[in-house]
Design a binder for these strands. Sequence first.
DNA 1: AAAACACTAAACCAATCGGTTGACAATCAC
DNA 2: GTGATTGTCAACCGATTGGTTTAGTGTTTT
Lengths: 142, 142
Amino acid sequence: MTITLNKRTFNHMVELCAHQIDIVFHALSDATRRQMLSELTLGERTVGQLAEPYDMSLAAASKHIKVLEGAGLVRREIQGRTHLCRLEPGPLATAHQWLGFYERFWTDRLDALERLLKEDDARKAAEARTQAKPASKPGNEA
Amino acid sequence: MTITLNKRTFNHMVELCAHQIDIVFHALSDATRRQMLSELTLGERTVGQLAEPYDMSLAAASKHIKVLEGAGLVRREIQGRTHLCRLEPGPLATAHQWLGFYERFWTDRLDALERLLKEDDARKAAEARTQAKPASKPGNEA
DNA sequence: AAAACACTAAACCAATCGGTTGACAATCAC
DNA sequence: GTGATTGTCAACCGATTGGTTTAGTGTTTT
C-alpha cells in the first residue's frame, strides 16, 4: 500500500524530468509570483490587473507572468487586446506530491517530539510524587 | 493535542516571513540539491559522501549543501574534520502546507474531469443503445 | 613533525535574474 | 483615421547563481 504510493511518487520524480520541477520551484521562489498565484485563486485576471498591486513596471510584471506561464502554473487566453490569465494547478499538485514524499520525516519528527514531551511529563510527575512522598517507590529512576 | 501540532506548523507559516519561503523554494529549485535531500533521506551523510555522485568540484557541492543549510533543510554536525549532515524536514513541511492551500484547485479540476468522463460514458452508452434499438427512445439527444 | 585528509574561503567567470526604459504591435473607442 | 489602451519585445543594468581554481584551516595518521 504505502509502497505503491512511494513508487508512484518516485515515478513522478523520475518521469517529470527534473528540469521541469526545477522550473516550477523556481517560479514559486519569488514572493511576487506567489502573490500573483494567490490572486488568481480568486478568479481570472488580466495582465494589467495582476500587475497593478506592485510597484514595478508593467513589463516587469509581465515577465513574472511569463515565468509562471513557462512553469505551466498559469494559462493565458488572449481576448482582443487584453490577456486573461487563469490558474493552472497541475504543477502545484506535482510539487505537492514531490514534497509529500518527505512527509514521513516531519511526522516522525513530530511524533518523536510528542513522545519526548510525554516522557518529560511523566518524569516531572514522578519527581513531584517523590517530592511529596520521598523514598516511597525508588524503582524507576535515572 | 492535534490542535497544538497544527498551531505549531501554522506559526511556522506566519512566522516564516515570505522571504524565507523564497529561500526554501529556491533551494528546492535545483536538481542536485533535491537529490542530496533524497540521499539524506537514507541517513546522515558527510559532505564528501553527498558530493561524491556529482561531476563537480567538492567546493561546488559544498556550496550546494550550504544553500540547503541556509534554507534550514539540512543541519550540520562537525565531528573532527568531517561534517555530518542530516535532513531537517521542517521547512519541507512548511512548503508542503503552503502548496496544500491550492489543493482544492487541482482536486476540483480532477473532479470536473471525472464528471466529464462519466457524462461521456453515459453519452456513449446511450449512443450504443440507440444503435442497437434505433428510434426506440428519441428523447435525450443533440 | 610531516603528510594525508575533509572541508571551507576567496577570487574569479559566464549565465541568469529581476528590474528598467523605449519602441513596437494590436485592439478599442471616438 | 486618430488616439488611447493593453501588452509584448529588445536592449540594457546591477545583483545573484552555479561553477571553477587556488589557497588555507583544522584533524587524523604515520
